[in-house]
């Protein structure tokens, strides 16, 4: 078994809502509410879910870009949350992040060379004399020309700019890259180029990815394992094949069935489960199973008992779901109420 690189235990991220005359905390947005998972060296784990499920917050909390409320984040056996700010900054050499919007995450007043040089300088990865060579190498690695290093970000197209974001993340030789919707803003033809590049870099440099995305097509293509989140909780987790071919949680099933298939006459026509209503507010999430307000299989028990992640005997090793009725639904003894 590969080595555990990242281990997240009972991570919580609450954002306080201030109000009232004294500006006291009157409530919390429970963006991430007690999640645990492990990422092994060299693999790609994706976190999927809709807006507000807490997937981006999870990525930011791991890097301590927002300080988590509670929980543990172990990286290479070391607890990141107990580090001082200065130690954490040094640690970020090993954990890098790529953001969705390359327009917003790269300083428009710096040339690409300055952007990359700054990263190299802060983490002091290579001696000053070798920096130029390293920058040229990085540019080539991400498929840009070394001669383009003195241009400004606006002189590049969206896809090229995302390559610059990747080059910046790679510049400090990280072990783990968190990619937060890294290809979502790109047109499909460009998106495919960037995905292929990321896979190639993973093979060459032995990188580990935590890939955060709402696009299940991209996720199926890039991941080894998948985590599905809903309203701050993990509802299902497992290897890619199990999640896509044998989803157990009703939310995962609904999510997969809602994606339009680019084929007007698909071979295996899947039944679409249309969920009623919207995602409830994370300020005051539903009791019991958080999905019960929209779940076609929900019972009285779901409104009260919080389901834990667990496996049924027929599920593949490592595949877990948080639903009281996985087995009954699988066997067809528990029917949807619509």
């Amino acid at each position: 078994m590969a080595k555990e690189l990242l281990k997240v235990t009972d991570l919580k991220q609450y954002f306080p809502i201030k109000g009232g005359m004294l500006g006291r905390t009157i409530n919390n947005v429970k963006a991430v509410d007690g999640i645990s998972f492990t990422v092994y060296e060299g693999e790609t784990v994706s976190i999927v879910g809709e807006s507000g499920c807490g997937k981006s917050t999870t990525g930011r909390a791991i890097l301590r870009l927002d300080e988590p409320t509670s929980g543990q984040v172990e990286f290479n056996g070391e607890d990141l949350l107990s580090l001082s700010k200065r130690q954490m900054r040094a640690k970020r050499k090993d954990l890098q992040i790529i953001f969705q919007d390359p327009y917003a995450s790269i300083n428009p007043r710096q040339t690409v060379r300055q952007v990359l040089e700054e990263a190299l300088q802060i983490q002091n990865v290579v001696p000053k004399s070798e920096r130029d060579a390293k920058i040229a190498e990085l540019m080539e690695v991400v498929g840009l020309g070394a001669h383009q290093a003195d241009r400004f970000p606006h002189e590049f197209s969206g896809g090229q700019r995302q390559r610059i974001g990747i080059a910046r993340a790679l510049s400090v030789d990280p072990k783990l890259i968190i990619a937060d919707e890294a290809v979502s803003a790109l047109d499909v033809s460009i998106q495919a180029q960037v995905i292929n590049l990321m896979k190639k870099l993973q093979r060459e440099f032995g990188l580990t990815y935590l890939f955060i995305s709402h696009d299940l097509g991209v996720v199926r293509h890039i991941s080894d394992r998948v985590i599905v989140m809903y309203l701050g909780k993990i509802v299902e987790m497992g290897d890619k094949k199990s999640i896509f071919d044998n989803p157990q949680h009703p939310y995962t099933k609904a999510l997969l069935s809602a994606i339009p298939v680019p084929d007007p006459e698909p071979e295996k026509k899947q039944e679409r489960i249309i969920l009623q209503g919207d995602v409830p507010s994370p300020i005051d999430p539903p009791s019991g199973c958080r999905f019960h307000t929209r779940c076609p299989f929900a019972t009285e028990k779901c409104k009260v008992d919080v389901p834990e992640l667990r496996a049924e005997d027929y599920m593949k090793e490592g595949h877990v779901g948080a639903c009281h009725y996985m087995k009954e639904i699988e066997e067809g003894t528990h029917k949807p109420n619509y």
Binding site: A192, V218, R220, H221, K240, F244, P262, P266
Partner: peptide
């Protein structure tokens, strides 16, 4: 170039 959720490459 479209990655699909219903097909495993």
């Amino acid at each position: 170039s479209l990655p699909r959720h219903d097909i495993d490459l």
